[in-house]
Protein backbone atom coordinates (compact mmCIF):
# COMPACT_ATOMS: atom_id res chain seq x y z
CA UNK A 1 0.00 0.00 0.00
CA UNK A 2 1.62 3.21 -1.12
CA UNK A 3 0.43 6.65 -1.96
CA UNK A 4 0.43 10.34 -1.19
CA UNK A 5 -0.97 12.08 1.85
CA UNK A 6 -1.78 15.78 1.79
CA UNK A 7 -2.32 18.00 4.81
CA UNK A 8 -4.78 20.86 4.33
CA UNK A 9 -5.45 23.76 6.60
CA UNK A 10 -8.75 24.88 5.07
CA UNK A 11 -12.00 23.08 4.45
CA UNK A 12 -12.74 24.60 1.05
CA UNK A 13 -9.22 23.80 -0.14
CA UNK A 14 -9.76 20.18 0.87
CA UNK A 15 -13.05 19.96 -0.98
CA UNK A 16 -11.53 21.49 -4.14
CA UNK A 17 -8.55 19.14 -3.96
CA UNK A 18 -10.72 16.05 -3.62
CA UNK A 19 -12.83 17.06 -6.62
CA UNK A 20 -9.67 17.58 -8.67
CA UNK A 21 -8.15 14.29 -7.54
CA UNK A 22 -11.31 12.42 -8.49
CA UNK A 23 -11.01 13.80 -12.00
CA UNK A 24 -7.38 12.70 -12.05
CA UNK A 25 -8.42 9.06 -11.37
CA UNK A 26 -5.11 8.31 -9.69
CA UNK A 27 -6.41 5.80 -7.14
CA UNK A 28 -8.55 5.26 -4.07
CA UNK A 29 -9.08 8.43 -2.04
CA UNK A 30 -9.72 8.78 1.66
CA UNK A 31 -10.49 12.00 3.54
CA UNK A 32 -9.71 12.84 7.15
CA UNK A 33 -11.51 15.56 9.05
CA UNK A 34 -11.36 16.64 12.72
CA UNK A 35 -15.14 16.88 12.80
CA UNK A 36 -17.77 15.57 10.40
CA UNK A 37 -18.65 18.17 7.77
CA UNK A 38 -21.50 18.15 5.33
CA UNK A 39 -19.21 19.57 2.66
CA UNK A 40 -17.21 16.34 2.73
CA UNK A 41 -20.20 14.04 2.84
CA UNK A 42 -21.01 12.25 -0.33
CA UNK A 43 -17.90 13.37 -2.18
CA UNK A 44 -16.44 9.89 -2.21
CA UNK A 45 -19.57 7.77 -2.14
CA UNK A 46 -23.31 8.26 -1.99
CA UNK A 47 -24.03 4.82 -0.64
CA UNK A 48 -25.94 4.92 2.65
CA UNK A 49 -24.40 3.25 5.67
CA UNK A 50 -25.47 -0.36 6.18
CA UNK A 51 -25.32 -0.02 9.96
CA UNK A 52 -29.11 0.17 9.82
CA UNK A 53 -29.27 -3.49 8.78
CA UNK A 54 -27.40 -4.58 11.87
CA UNK A 55 -29.76 -2.45 13.95
CA UNK A 56 -32.84 -3.99 12.36
CA UNK A 57 -31.64 -7.56 12.68
CA UNK A 58 -30.46 -7.04 16.27
CA UNK A 59 -33.70 -5.36 17.28
CA UNK A 60 -35.87 -8.09 15.77
CA UNK A 61 -33.73 -10.82 17.31
CA UNK A 62 -33.91 -9.14 20.73
CA UNK A 63 -37.68 -8.69 20.58
CA UNK A 64 -38.18 -12.31 19.53
CA UNK A 65 -35.88 -13.62 22.23
CA UNK A 66 -37.58 -11.36 24.77
CA UNK A 67 -40.94 -13.00 24.06
CA UNK A 68 -39.55 -16.49 23.65
CA UNK A 69 -37.73 -16.89 26.95
CA UNK A 70 -40.61 -15.97 29.31
CA UNK A 71 -43.10 -17.96 27.22
CA UNK A 72 -40.82 -20.99 27.25
CA UNK A 73 -40.18 -20.66 30.98
CA UNK A 74 -43.92 -20.25 31.69
CA UNK A 75 -44.55 -23.42 29.78
CA UNK A 76 -41.67 -25.23 31.47
CA UNK A 77 -42.81 -24.28 35.00
CA UNK A 78 -46.50 -23.38 34.71
CA UNK A 79 -48.11 -21.27 37.42
CA UNK A 80 -51.81 -21.63 36.75
CA UNK A 81 -53.83 -18.80 38.29
CA UNK A 82 -57.60 -18.75 37.96
CA UNK A 83 -57.60 -20.72 34.74
CA UNK A 84 -55.99 -17.84 32.87
CA UNK A 85 -53.54 -18.53 30.04
CA UNK A 86 -50.13 -19.41 31.43
CA UNK A 87 -48.06 -17.24 29.07
CA UNK A 88 -49.19 -13.64 29.53
CA UNK A 89 -48.09 -11.49 26.64
CA UNK A 90 -48.75 -8.11 28.30
CA UNK A 91 -46.02 -8.31 30.98
CA UNK A 92 -43.78 -10.20 28.57
CA UNK A 93 -43.89 -7.21 26.24
CA UNK A 94 -41.77 -5.34 28.78
CA UNK A 95 -39.09 -8.03 28.66
CA UNK A 96 -39.32 -8.11 24.87
CA UNK A 97 -38.98 -4.34 24.59
CA UNK A 98 -35.97 -4.19 26.89
CA UNK A 99 -34.19 -6.98 25.03
CA UNK A 100 -35.02 -5.38 21.69
CA UNK A 101 -33.30 -2.18 22.84
CA UNK A 102 -30.39 -4.04 24.40
CA UNK A 103 -29.58 -6.40 21.56
CA UNK A 104 -30.47 -3.81 18.91
CA UNK A 105 -28.04 -1.33 20.46
CA UNK A 106 -25.25 -3.85 20.78
CA UNK A 107 -25.84 -4.97 17.18
CA UNK A 108 -25.62 -1.32 16.09
CA UNK A 109 -22.25 -1.00 17.76
CA UNK A 110 -21.12 -4.25 16.16
CA UNK A 111 -22.31 -2.89 12.81
CA UNK A 112 -20.32 0.30 13.35
CA UNK A 113 -17.18 -1.64 14.21
CA UNK A 114 -17.50 -3.95 11.23
CA UNK A 115 -18.36 -1.32 8.64
CA UNK A 116 -15.94 1.34 9.89
CA UNK A 117 -13.25 -1.29 10.36
CA UNK A 118 -12.49 -0.63 14.00
CA UNK A 119 -10.83 -1.67 16.26
CA UNK A 120 -7.69 -1.07 14.28
CA UNK A 121 -4.64 -2.64 15.86
CA UNK A 122 -2.10 -0.41 14.11
CA UNK A 123 -2.48 2.97 12.48
CA UNK A 124 -2.19 2.44 8.76
CA UNK A 125 -0.14 4.60 6.45
CA UNK A 126 -1.61 7.84 5.25
CA UNK A 127 -2.57 9.20 8.66
CA UNK A 128 -1.23 12.22 10.47
CA UNK A 129 -1.86 13.25 14.08
CA UNK A 130 -2.90 16.70 12.91
CA UNK A 131 -6.04 15.22 11.33
CA UNK A 132 -7.73 14.81 14.69
CA UNK A 133 -6.85 18.30 15.81
CA UNK A 134 -7.28 21.07 13.26
CA UNK A 135 -6.17 19.90 9.84
CA UNK A 136 -7.91 18.10 7.04
CA UNK A 137 -6.21 15.28 5.22
CA UNK A 138 -6.43 13.54 1.87
CA UNK A 139 -4.84 10.17 1.20
CA UNK A 140 -4.55 8.86 -2.34
CA UNK A 141 -3.44 5.27 -2.79
CA UNK A 142 -1.60 5.28 -6.10
CA UNK A 143 1.36 3.71 -7.93
CA UNK A 144 4.69 5.60 -8.23
CA UNK A 145 4.03 6.76 -11.79
CA UNK A 146 0.96 8.72 -10.70
CA UNK A 147 2.37 10.23 -7.55
CA UNK A 148 3.84 13.29 -9.21
CA UNK A 149 0.47 14.29 -10.62
CA UNK A 150 -1.25 13.76 -7.30
CA UNK A 151 1.39 15.80 -5.48
CA UNK A 152 1.08 18.64 -7.93
CA UNK A 153 -2.71 18.64 -7.70
CA UNK A 154 -2.68 18.75 -3.92
CA UNK A 155 -0.16 21.59 -3.81
CA UNK A 156 -2.09 23.52 -6.43
CA UNK A 157 -5.19 23.37 -4.26
CA UNK A 158 -3.53 24.59 -1.10
CA UNK A 159 -2.02 21.59 0.68
CA UNK A 160 0.39 22.79 3.36
CA UNK A 161 2.33 19.54 3.27
CA UNK A 162 2.43 16.66 0.81
CA UNK A 163 4.44 13.51 1.32
CA UNK A 164 4.68 10.01 -0.05
CA UNK A 165 4.10 7.04 2.23
CA UNK A 166 4.23 3.29 1.93
Amino acid sequence: MQGIVGVFRELDATVDAVHALKKLRAGNIDIYTPAPRHELEGILTHRPSIVRLYTLIGGLAGATFGYWIPIWISDYWPLVVGGKPVPSWVPYTIISFELMVLIGSLATVAGLFITARVPRITMTVGYDERFSNANFGVWVECPPEKQAGVTETMKRHGATEVRGER
Binding site: D30, I31, Y32, T33, P34, P36, L40, E41, I43, L44, T45, P48, S49, V51, R52, T55, G59, F97, V101, G104, S105, T108, V109, G111, L112, F113, T115, A116, R117, V118, P119, R120, I121, T122, M123, T124, Y127, F131, S132
Partner: peptide, 28 residues
Protein backbone atom coordinates in the same frame (compact mmCIF):
# COMPACT_ATOMS: atom_id res chain seq x y z
CA UNK B 1 -9.69 5.07 20.72
CA UNK B 2 -9.56 1.64 19.01
CA UNK B 3 -7.47 3.07 16.22
CA UNK B 4 -10.01 5.73 15.25
CA UNK B 5 -8.63 7.92 12.44
CA UNK B 6 -11.36 10.46 11.65
CA UNK B 7 -11.73 9.18 8.11
CA UNK B 8 -14.80 9.91 6.02
CA UNK B 9 -15.70 6.21 6.09
CA UNK B 10 -15.62 6.15 9.87
CA UNK B 11 -17.66 9.33 10.25
CA UNK B 12 -20.30 8.12 7.82
CA UNK B 13 -21.00 4.93 9.74
CA UNK B 14 -20.48 6.62 13.08
CA UNK B 15 -23.20 9.16 12.31
CA UNK B 16 -25.68 6.46 11.43
CA UNK B 17 -24.81 4.30 14.45
CA UNK B 18 -25.02 7.27 16.79
CA UNK B 19 -28.42 8.18 15.40
CA UNK B 20 -29.77 4.68 15.98
CA UNK B 21 -28.33 4.51 19.47
CA UNK B 22 -30.08 7.81 20.22
CA UNK B 23 -33.27 6.42 18.71
CA UNK B 24 -33.06 3.35 20.96
CA UNK B 25 -32.24 5.41 24.03
CA UNK B 26 -35.24 7.68 23.61
CA UNK B 27 -37.99 5.11 24.25
CA UNK B 28 -35.69 3.40 26.73
Amino acid sequence: SLGWRNSELEWRHFARAYLFLAAFSTPL
